[in-house]
């Protein structure tokens, strides 16, 4: 546990020195949001379209930042040192935690902006937040794993979205469906199927990643 925490703290400190990932992810979100908003213009899009758009923006902005965590280690050639001082499971969990926090930061900025700019009406706000919260675990878990794979491949970055999309798509599909339900004033129980699926996906993808990470990390 302590190792996980130390790696997480190290990554946070490193991030605050350059602020690359957080800048990339937030600016990407703002740029996409303004592009979408500009394209829609004065039309008011329906809630169905808006909930899908929200997840598309969230997905692509997170893709712009999540891969950075492992590529940074390879670029500064600190990966080998990290291999010596920590076990693979703790490295994965530490990086996962960092990406999770990064995603939460993105959501804290994106949600109010999206609601304000797109005139997005939410009937059941707690359900929406719950969906985002549970969905973030699956997204960060899958994203961190694909980032680890990508950092070992020679062409870095460009492939990340292509590889991550099929893995994270279950989160997107169920997330969109749950968000549609949250736009109406329905009780949380009505989205029980989606929330269960999101939760199960998070648990499965994180477990599988912990089991497989050893093979990616150690040559």
């Amino acid at each position: 546990m302590k190792q996980t925490w130390l790696i997480f703290v190290k990554d946070i400190q490193q991030e605050f020195k350059t602020r690359y990932a957080i800048n990339a992810i937030l600016l990407f979100a703002v740029v996409t949001l303004s592009a979408v908003s500009f394209a829609i213009g004065t039309f008011t899009a329906g809630n169905q379209v808006l909930s899908a758009l929200f997840w598309v923006i969230l997905f692509f902005s997170s893709m712009s930042g999540l891969s950075h965590i492992f590529i940074r280690e390879e670029e500064s050639q600190t990966a080998d040192t990290l291999k010596l001082v920590a076990s693979p499971m703790h490295i994965y969990l530490g990086k996962f935690l960092f990406n999770l926090i990064l995603l939460f930061a993105l959501e804290i900025i994106l949600v109010p902006l999206f609601i304000a700019v797109m005139n997005f009406k939410l009937g059941n706000f707690p359900l929406f937040l719950l969906t985002l919260f549970i969905g973030s675990f699956g997204m960060a878990g899958g994203g961190t794993m694909v980032a680890a794979i990508i950092s070992k491949a020679s062409s870095k970055g460009a492939l990340f979205t292509v590889l991550a999309f099929p893995i994270i798509l279950p989160v997107m599909i169920t997330g969109i469906s749950a968000t549609k339900k949250a736009t109406e004033t329905t009780p949380i129980a009505s989205a029980q199927n989606e929330l269960q699926a999101l939760f199960a996906f998070g648990v499965i993808i994180i477990t599988a990643s912990i089991l497989l990470f050893d093979y990616v990390w150690n040559e």
Partner: peptide, 19 residues
């Protein structure tokens, strides 16, 4: 990657058609 993808496929076969 193949194994990671393999883990997610049951979601498309069993869960998405339910939703």
């Amino acid at each position: 990657y193949s194994l990671l993808a393999f883990v997610t496929v049951p979601f498309f076969i069993f869960i998405v058609p339910r939703i």
